[in-house]
């Protein structure tokens, strides 16, 4: 705080830079100090001396290349008018875009309902977004996707496997990994959430048009996991259950209960295998 304040009047005529920027430099370094804490103790006295000359004096690398036409070059009235028209157009598009993105991000209200169709047209597919991150509430339970297989044996009999925990495989990859893979962190997690969003929890009937697609995705993931585990095309059908365990309140410690949602047996299709 103190040192940059000293520094600015210290070298007032040094640079012809606008005041705003040198002011910003002073504040920026004030907050920059704590961030770049890596600098050892001797870093503390030096900024007052070093920053203004380093921040103010741009090395050629820091000077932006101008367009072929220098910005300060004289422009005729015609050029200025045409440019202004374009600029106004660009500003209008910008405002419309920001308006629609705002409506898209905002919770449902009178305005969003009125412009729902226009918003959808403008926003999909490239500007779709949802920032309810761990909100309104973070999930209060953990889920494990588990799967069971039915394999036709060489004698024609059907062998039913035990439940295997696919989520646990993911977790084993995630644990101790500073940069977990999407394949472990997002695949089953999002496949299950999109399935449960588009299916009735009671009778597993599809809600909306994406039901079949999400079911197929989930089935294929499980088939692929079984393939990775060594099964081949003799895998006839699979069954999924999801074990949900409540996290529980921080202080109360009743033993967390686990509930199961078991889906029906799904027959595998030839193109499920890879």
């Amino acid at each position: 705080m103190q040192s940059p304040d000293d520094a600015v009047p210290g070298q007032p005529v040094d640079r012809s830079k606008p005041e705003v920027e040198s002011g910003a430099a002073a504040v920026g370094t004030a907050t920059g100090g704590p961030t770049t804490d890596s600098g050892p103790a001797p870093g503390t006295p030096s900024p007052a001396v070093r920053i203004p000359e380093q921040a103010g004096e741009r090395s050629p690398v820091d000077v932006p290349t101008d367009t072929a036409v220098p910005a300060e070059e004289r422009r005729s009235i015609a050029v200025r008018s045409v440019t202004a028209v374009f600029a106004v157009l660009a500003i209008l598009v910008t405002l419309v875009h920001v308006f629609f993105v705002f409506l898209h991000v905002a919770p449902s209200n009178a305005l969003t309902k009125e412009y729902q169709k226009e918003t959808g047209t403008w926003v999909y597919p490239y500007f779709e977004q949802n920032w309810a991150l761990f909100a309104p509430n973070p999930m209060s339970e953990n889920f494990r996707v588990q799967a069971q297989s039915r394999v036709r044996g060489p004698d024609g009999g059907v062998v039913e496997s035990d439940w295997s925990d696919l989520t646990l495989d993911d977790l084993n990859h995630i644990r101790g990994n500073p940069y977990p893979s999407k394949a472990d962190q997002n695949m089953i997690r999002r496949a299950w959430s999109s399935y449960s969003d588009s299916h009735d929890a009671k009778d597993e009937s599809a809600i909306g048009s994406r039901g079949p697609l999400t079911q197929r995705y989930l089935r294929r993931i499980v088939v692929h996991r079984f393939q990775d585990a060594g099964l081949n095309r003799s895998l006839e059908s699979i069954r999924i259950r999801v074990a949900t365990t409540a996290i529980g309140k921080p202080d109360a410690s009743p033993a967390p209960t686990t509930s199961y949602r078991t889906l029906g047996w799904w027959e595998t299709k030839p193109d499920d295998f890879r």
């Binding site: 909100a135 309104p136 509430n137 989520t167 977790l171």
Partner: peptide, 27 residues
């Protein structure tokens, strides 16, 4: 604003739940 609506963020237990999510717990 979405968080403001959530009871866990209001009573300050949100961190407890977030940190207990298995898919987001490398450590």
């Amino acid at each position: 604003l979405y968080k403001v609506q959530g009871s866990y963020w209001q009573d300050g237990t949100a961190m407890h739940y977030v940190l207990n999510l298995e898919y987001f717990a490398p450590w």
